[in-house]
């Protein structure tokens, strides 16, 4: 098994099974320094299991995983110094305030004296929790708790951050603030692996995206390459979503579309129709010519932009183990 030295996170043919259930099946990928990799997949796809392995909470049944060149199985203590993990739950304590919470983890990571105080102050500043330092954790909002947990993961200034569903349950403002923090961390050169169900947000912060389903890695690449996947091949027939806008009566346009067997209407407004059409580029242009030569007065014909959600839906089948 080979190890890419430049990679801050690397999984090489990692498999994890629980009895007969294969939670992670022969997964390989890497995350470079300063890179943000989005990890997406349906529930039960194996995202959290993979992240648990990288976080030194579990060991793979077979395969290897490294963080900053150290094996998560053989040198977990060294990996832990370099890695911060934010789980999908908060993991807080009763009868303790924000500062004491961060102080506990700073001490647990071996920070002493002024280094510890400095680390707490920096994290408080970064997560903007300064005003709430003496507030009991139980009194914090969900967004604030999430910030605190991000602060905990950052307290020892790790090179690698693993965030499991960081935006789950947050309101729009908290999400935006979290996104900004993630981008700032990436700009500082930290490597991030983020799993999320909010794909539009991942598209904005991630350099690359990995799609996983039933423990298998289905696709990995930059967001742009995934969005444009297959579009370069003009001969290949693919399903596209098209929108046509017109001045004519809607009923007239619907009649024309209904007469065709090769399109599937999705939605319509007073002067537009969105439909699915499976064809190569050549057939698309022929279709357009036919549409123009009909009595419908068209003023716009466009392919609807593919989103990460569309890619995710087309790659996965929505099955869980």
């Amino acid at each position: 098994m080979s190890q890419t030295v430049e990679a801050m996170i690397q999984l090489d043919r990692v498999t994890r099974s629980f009895g007969d259930t294969l939670a992670v099946d022969d997964i390989s990928f890497h995350v470079g320094a300063g890179e943000v990799l989005g990890f997406i997949g349906p529930n039960g796809a194996g995202k959290t299991t993979s992240m648990r392995i990288l976080s030194t909470l579990d060991t793979p049944t077979s395969g290897e995983a490294w963080v900053d060149g150290f094996s998560v199985v053989d040198d977990p203590d060294r990996v832990r110094r370099r890695m911060g993990w934010m789980p999908d739950g908060f993991g807080t304590y009763p009868n303790i305030n924000c500062e004491e919470y961060l102080d506990f983890f700073a001490r647990s990571y071996g920070l002493r004296g002024k280094n510890r105080l400095r680390a707490i102050r920096n994290v408080m500043g970064f997560t903007q929790l300064n005003q709430l330092s003496k507030k009991p954790i139980s009194g914090l909002s969900k967004g604030m708790k999430q910030r605190l947990c991000l602060g905990r993961a950052l307290i020892h200034n790790p090179k690698v951050l693993i965030l499991d569903e960081p935006a789950a349950g947050l309101d729009p403002r908290a999400r935006i603030e979290l996104r900004e923090m993630i981008l700032e961390l990436a700009n500082e050169g930290k490597s991030l692996l983020i799993s999320s169900h909010i794909l539009s947000e991942l598209a904005e912060v991630c350099d690359r995206v990995a799609i996983i389903e039933k423990g298998k890695l289905l696709a990995i690449g930059s967001v742009d390459s995934l969005l444009n996947k297959g579009s370069e091949d003009s001969q290949e027939e693919k399903l596209v979503q098209l929108e046509v806008k017109f001045f004519s009566e809607l009923s007239e346009a619907v009649r024309w579309f209904d007469a065709r067997n090769d399109v599937a209407l999705i939605s319509s407004t007073e002067n537009s129709i969105v439909f699915n059409y499976a064809a190569c580029h050549k057939r698309q242009s022929k279709f357009l010519a036919e549409l123009v030569s009909s009595k419908i007065e068209i003023y716009e014909f466009s392919e609807k932009q593919t989103s990460l959600e569309d890619v995710f839906l087309s790659v996965t089948r929505g099955e869980v183990q």
Partner: peptide
């Protein structure tokens, strides 16, 4: 119960 043992386990303690 609270899952905080995971957070402590991944510190350097």
């Amino acid at each position: 119960d609270d899952g905080t043992i995971r957070l402590i386990s991944i510190t350097t303690m």
